[in-house]
Amino acid sequence: MGSLAVTGWMPMSATCRSADRVRGFTLLELLVVLALVAAIAAVVLPGLANMQSAWSRRVALQDIQEQLQSLGLRVRNDGRELTIDADGASRAELLQVPTGWLIVAEPPVRYLANGVCLGGSLRIIHDGLPRDVRLDPPFCAPKGLP
């Protein structure tokens, strides 16, 4: 009874506390994980910023395209001619361009009061980058936009 082999009990040294130890992460492990997350964020975040600006540019182009597609009908409903020239649209309320964008035409593009477009080409400019759009009469559906 007094023997250790019979009872299966083994005394532990005073320096080994593995049975009492609380499980968790060491400070070094946490620092390594934080460094990895920071490295991944440094690679991904610039791409997200570019993706956001590309998305907003695409949304603005789609808005311009929708406005151009319905411009003849809106001119007809208004009953007055519209001219788009080097200064933009003669009546800005019919062609509202997003902030930072510019639509010009040289030679001018005319929409008659009955909504018929005489055709031509437009230049859509954003951040100094032009995009040319062709308008074929009589409806002038824009060609060259996404």
Rank of each mutant, 00 (worst) to 15 (best):
19 A>Q: 09
20 D>T: 15
23 R>A: 15
24 G>A: 12
25 F>G: 08
27 L>Y: 01
29 E>M: 04
30 L>Y: 01
30 L>M: 10
31 L>M: 13
33 V>T: 09
33 V>M: 06
34 L>P: 00
35 A>K: 02
39 A>N: 00
39 A>S: 08
41 A>L: 12
41 A>V: 11
41 A>Y: 00
42 A>S: 10
42 A>T: 10
42 A>F: 04
43 V>T: 12
45 L>F: 08
46 P>E: 02
46 P>W: 04
47 G>I: 02
48 L>R: 00
48 L>V: 09
50 N>H: 08
50 N>M: 10
52 Q>F: 10
54 A>E: 04
54 A>T: 12
57 R>Y: 02
59 V>F: 00
60 A>S: 13
61 L>W: 07
62 Q>F: 08
63 D>N: 14
63 D>S: 15
64 I>L: 13
64 I>E: 05
66 E>V: 11
67 Q>N: 11
68 L>S: 08
68 L>C: 12
69 Q>H: 12
71 L>K: 04
71 L>S: 03
73 L>A: 11
75 V>G: 05
75 V>F: 07
76 R>G: 07
82 L>Y: 08
83 T>I: 14
85 D>K: 06
87 D>L: 14
88 G>L: 06
89 A>K: 09
90 S>H: 06
91 R>V: 09
92 A>I: 05
92 A>Y: 00
93 E>W: 06
93 E>F: 08
94 L>F: 01
95 L>Q: 03
96 Q>P: 02
96 Q>C: 07
97 V>Y: 02
99 T>N: 08
99 T>Q: 13
100 G>D: 11
101 W>C: 06
101 W>F: 09
101 W>L: 11
102 L>G: 01
104 V>W: 04
104 V>Y: 03
105 A>F: 05
106 E>D: 15
107 P>C: 08
108 P>I: 00
109 V>L: 02
110 R>S: 01
110 R>T: 07
111 Y>H: 06
112 L>H: 10
113 A>N: 11
113 A>G: 01
114 N>R: 12
115 G>P: 01
116 V>I: 12
117 C>N: 10
118 L>R: 15
119 G>W: 03
119 G>M: 05
120 G>V: 10
120 G>I: 09
122 L>M: 03
123 R>H: 03
125 I>D: 09
128 G>N: 14
128 G>Y: 12
